[in-house]
Amino acid sequence: MLKQYFKNIKNASTSIFEGLAVTLSYMVRKPITIQYPDRIEKPLPEMLPPTFRGILEVDTGICTVCMACMKRCPLDTIYIESERDPETRKNYLTRFDIDVARCMVCGLCTEVCPTGAIRHSTEFDAVTSDVINLVMRYVQPGDKIPAYKVSKEEEPPGVPQNEPYCRLKKQWDAPAPLQPDEVRGAVRWKKQTSKQEGR
């Protein structure tokens, strides 16, 4: 009994001593804090590995308008419209919207893209005063971008793998002007064509 009593005192003092030694040693070790956003050596998106799944970005120049990404998206984040010229029988991309606020950056859309037109940037700080600004509009209203044709001989001019790709930043600084009605229209479209039939 008495032995246990003194053993308790000894245990308590030695273990507290050990704990204090650990915390004391951290007084002279390097902190791991990265002082985001201002006191860092280079912008954080450049420090992230190229595999990082950030905000989606689209290179409309190599988009084949196959709409695989739109079909794959579990959240109906992507909205693409195309137009076929009746004379030349050519396909045109007329609308490519990504609602970043809905996106859960799962990366499923980038895996089905045949050319690498849609892919993740390493940007992640989507801060805005209005959630409407988070609808990224890659084709301006009225524009018509011809669909890219994959030729069998040459590789698609997609971005090289394993290389960060930050073209988004420029677009981010000046978000495309967008009317709230347009967004609501897009959302309504999603509801109508939603693949969620009841059983």
Partner: peptide, 24 residues
């Protein structure tokens, strides 16, 4: 994990028949 699968918390790493990314 960022290098393995691209995300820090919600990995979404595995696919039917394997994984989404090869190792860097």
């Amino acid at each position: 994990m960022e290098k393995i699968c691209g995300a820090r918390l919600n990995y979404n790493y595995m696919r039917f028949g394997g994984v989404s990314l090869d190792y860097m």
